[in-house]
């Protein structure tokens, strides 16, 4: 029995796939057996029908709108985090001056700030990207800074003893050393960026999956709202996997031993 179990475990995705299938079957039967009203919990089959509510090209347009904002926010987060993390690592003054501020920003519920941002910055892309950025950048800064600070002192002393240009302490030692940390941060941040984009669409948008869900629920078209949710989950999972596979492919040395 245990032997079969370990063998099952070795096929990637088999166990979670099976679990998911079982849940779907339970879900479908229970909605039918207990006749749960669709607006409370639509059966998976009804949600599948919900995908037919709009054309494929409409779906793609909505998905693209969300993905675009999420990616712009995510990229902005990366571009801002890296120099910020370097400054936080390099300069004590920056670290003690800015870090508390970052924590304040992180403690602020951005969802509540979103409407304010839309009012002051307008309902354009800039606001949506800004909201996404604010939601997704904190874990990146923290993971990058932690990684760069976790570099062994000996290597930094080696760098100093060579009188190497200070920039190389980062490009050749600290940043590569932070790679495992950076990827943990990227994985969290990329899923947060999808959340950020949806939050922004809830506040002000005329397309995007977030907008579509809100629009559908306002018309009580619950199955198609669930279908939209399914697409968001799929989007997050795909982005997460892209990051995970990038690390596996380009930085295999940075993976913990068991997962090689």
């Amino acid at each position: 029995m245990t032997a079969t179990l370990t063998r099952v475990n070795r096929v990637p995705g088999l166990l979670p796939g099976l679990t998911f299938l079982i849940i779907l079957v339970l879900w479908e039967t229970s909605t039918r057996v207990f006749t749960i009203p669709t607006f409370l919990l639509p059966a998976p089959s009804r949600i599948l029908e919900g995908f037919d509510a709009v054309t494929v090209s409409r779906w793609l347009a909505h998905a693209w709108a969300t993905l675009r904002v999420a990616m712009l926010g995510f990229l902005t987060a990366i571009v801002v985090s890296l120099p910020l993390a370097i400054a936080l690592t390099r300069f004590k003054l920056v670290s003690s001056g800015i870090y508390p501020l970052l924590v304040v920003i992180q403690s602020t519920p951005i969802v509540a700030v979103a409407p304010i941002i839309i009012v002051t910055m307008g309902s354009g892309d800039v606001s949506r990207v800004l909201i996404t950025f604010m939601i997704s950048f904190f874990p990146l800064v923290v993971s990058m800074t932690t990684g760069m600070k976790a570099t062994p002192d000996e290597l930094i002393e080696l760098s100093h003893s060579l009188k190497a240009p200070a920039i190389r302490e980062f490009t050749q030692i600290r940043i590569p050393y932070a790679i495992p940390y950076i990827f943990s941060g990227l994985k969290i941040s990329v899923t947060l960026s999808v959340i950020g984009a949806v939050v922004a669409e809830f506040v002000a948008a005329e397309k995007g999956i977030g907008y579509f869900i809100q629009f559908s629920t306002s018309l009580f078209k619950i199955p198609q709202a669930w279908a939209g949710l399914g697409i968001l989950v799929l989007m997050s999972l795909t982005l997460f996997q892209i990051i995970a596979q990038t690390q596996r492919y380009f930085f295999p040395w940075s993976l913990p031993r068991e997962s090689k």
Partner: peptide
């Protein structure tokens, strides 16, 4: 720091991403 001194630390602290050869030439690259 001078160029005619080499240091061996208590922990070897090699670069995990570099091959052994790249680790040995690292001071030059750096």
């Amino acid at each position: 720091p001078r160029d005619d001194i080499g240091i061996v630390f208590q922990k070897p602290t090699l670069l995990p991403w570099a091959t052994l050869e790249d680790n040995v030439v690292f001071p030059m690259k750096h």
